[in-house]
Computed example of a mutant assay.
Amino acid sequence: MKQIIARPLSAEGFAPFGDVIELKDTPDKIINQGMCGRHHDLANMDFGPDGRAGISLFNATPRALPYTVDMVERHPEGSQAFIPMTEHAFLVIVAKDLGGSPDAPLAFLTAPGQAINFHRNTWHGVLTPLSNPGLFAVVDRIGDTANLEEFWFDTPYQVVEEQSPRSGPP
């Protein structure tokens, strides 16, 4: 089995696949009688010409590291945002497209307060919370046309957590 190291999620590292949704250093504007900072328009949502935005709740069973990736999927008709409804980290798996099939996957671990938006047609793993409850608000395309393509790897991948460097001699 091929191994993938899960690295911390960052906007720069995730940019080819989508948007990291998190607070900015300062809000775009202050609203609600000065009691709320609005961090505006944080994701490039795309629902295609025949779709509309929908909000769903997903309640996923938590997984654990090491985690086996044997399948990825993509949505050719629209983007898909996953917004955790808890402060727990979750695993995000993505892959670049190689002419219709995915390249080797990459894995990211979110920090508390981070959410993600997969751009349209981005290969990604299934929703992978690492703690209970695995409750997420999902904003994605609702429409009548097919919006799911799956790819099963001949050889699965195993995602492991990045090891901290040891201090001192072995």
Rank of each mutant, 00 (worst) to 15 (best):
M71E: 05
I93K: 01
K24C: 02
G143Q: 06
Y157D: 08
H75W: 04
P16F: 04
I142D: 02
G48D: 13
A53Q: 13
L130R: 13
Q114F: 10
D46A: 14
D25W: 01
L98G: 00
T68P: 00
E161Y: 01
D41H: 08
F58C: 10
D19A: 03
V160T: 12
D28K: 06
P16M: 05
F58Y: 15
E87Q: 14
M45V: 14
V20D: 07
I5M: 02
S164G: 09
E77D: 03
A64H: 09
H39C: 12
A111D: 13
P170S: 09
A137E: 00
D144T: 08
P62L: 13
P112W: 13
F90N: 02
P165F: 09
G48I: 12
E150S: 08
F153R: 00
I93M: 01
N59R: 12
G54A: 12
L57Y: 09
E73Y: 02
S56P: 00
P66S: 10
N59Y: 11
D154K: 15
V94H: 08
P156L: 09
A146T: 15
T86V: 14
S10V: 07
K29D: 10
D140F: 03
K24T: 08
V20L: 08
P102A: 06
M35V: 05
P62D: 13
G134V: 07
L57S: 11
H119T: 09
Q163H: 12
G134A: 12
D154S: 14
V69R: 01
D19E: 06
T110I: 11
E22H: 07
F47G: 13
A111V: 02
Y157L: 07
